Simulated scan of single mutants.
Amino acid sequence: MTQNNLLTQVSNCVICEPQLPLGARPVVQFNPSARILIAGQAPGLKVHKTGIPFDDASGQRLRQWLGLDKDDFYDATKIAILPMGFCYPGKGKSGDLPPRKECAPTWRAELLAALPNIKLTIVLGKYAQAYHLPHTKHLPLTELVKSWREYWPAILPLPHPSPRNNIWLAKNPWFERDVVPKLCDAVQSILNREDG
């Protein structure tokens, strides 16, 4: 299947629409040339409304961690963004509901296979962790992120950049001191190699 056909099929997907409170609106960023993959959870309400991935406070912090401006972040030839669930799942008791379970089995393997140039996969949150690092799904977030060197430089597990994680970031200052600079350097190196 060609890239355009695949993107069209994903964009028109309604497989779990009956379970979605606001209907289906898949939000992805995809181009086979991408060198960095961001594997997140699922779009939030604001992203559902705009159709732009990470168009919220989480995205602002994530771009800071990556050392990227909006132009580079939203350049699909550089950055692919494939959440575990492509549509807003709705609100739960303590934040958004988990990504719908239908999405990843339906689309993920085919989309990942169509990204042959990925040099770094950034894994955000426990659902992406369970898929991309299945042998670590029993690990608490802090332990997983502390062991980041074990997966580096191909994969980097991160805490979710949501403001909900401000307390975690305050309790774990080593993350922004030790991990974020390495991430920024790697991102620049990967994208510069592409540009060169």
Score class of each variant (00 low, 15 high):
Thr2Ile: 00
Gln3Tyr: 06
Gln3Asn: 09
Asn4Leu: 06
Gln9Asp: 13
Val10Phe: 05
Ser11Ile: 00
Asn12Trp: 07
Cys13Glu: 11
Val14Gly: 13
Val14Leu: 15
Ile15Tyr: 13
Pro21Ile: 01
Leu22Cys: 10
Arg25Lys: 14
Pro26Glu: 05
Val28Gly: 01
Gln29Thr: 01
Phe30Asn: 04
Phe30Pro: 01
Pro32Tyr: 03
Pro32Arg: 14
Ala34Tyr: 04
Ala34Arg: 13
Arg35Met: 04
Arg35Cys: 06
Ile36Glu: 09
Leu37Glu: 06
Gly40Thr: 08
Gly40Val: 02
Gly40Lys: 08
Gly40Ile: 02
Gln41Pro: 02
Ala42Ser: 15
Pro43Lys: 10
Pro43Asn: 08
Pro43Leu: 07
Pro43Ile: 00
Leu45Pro: 10
Leu45Trp: 11
Val47Thr: 15
His48Leu: 06
Lys49Asp: 11
Thr50Cys: 01
Phe54Ser: 05
Asp56Arg: 12
Ala57Pro: 08
Ala57Val: 03
Ala57Gly: 07
Gln60Ala: 12
Arg61Ile: 01
Leu62Val: 02
Arg63Gly: 04
Leu68Glu: 09
Leu68Arg: 07
Asp69Tyr: 01
Asp69Pro: 04
Phe73His: 04
Tyr74Ile: 01
Lys78Asp: 01
Lys78Leu: 04
Ile81Asn: 14
Ile81Arg: 15
Leu82Pro: 10
Pro89Asn: 08
Ser94Lys: 15
Leu97Met: 12
Pro98Trp: 01
Pro99Ala: 14
Pro99Arg: 13
Glu102Val: 05
Ala104Ser: 15
Ala104Phe: 08
Pro105Arg: 12
Thr106Asn: 14
Thr106Met: 12
Trp107Thr: 08
Glu110Gly: 06
Leu111Ile: 11
Leu115Ser: 14
Pro116Phe: 05
Asn117Phe: 03
Ile118Pro: 14
Lys119Val: 00
Gly125Thr: 02
Gly125Ile: 03
Tyr127Ala: 09
Tyr127Met: 06
Tyr127Cys: 02
His132Trp: 14
Pro134Val: 06
Lys137Phe: 02
Leu139Ala: 05
Leu141Cys: 08
Val145Gly: 05
Ser147Val: 00
Trp148Glu: 11
Arg149Met: 08
Pro157Tyr: 10
Leu158Ile: 04
His160Pro: 07
Pro163Ala: 05
Arg164His: 10
Asn165Ile: 00
Asn166Leu: 05
Leu169Gly: 01
Pro173Ser: 09
Phe175Leu: 03
Phe175Tyr: 12
Glu176Lys: 10
Asp178Cys: 00
Asp178Pro: 06
Asp178Trp: 04
Val180Leu: 11
Lys182Cys: 04
Leu183Phe: 03
Leu183Met: 10
Asp185Ala: 12
Ala186Gly: 08
Ala186Phe: 00
Val187Asn: 10
Gln188Met: 02
Ser189Gly: 05
Ser189Pro: 03
Ile190Asn: 13
Ile190Val: 12
Ile190Trp: 08
Ile190Lys: 12
Ile190Ala: 06
Leu191Arg: 03
Gly196Met: 05
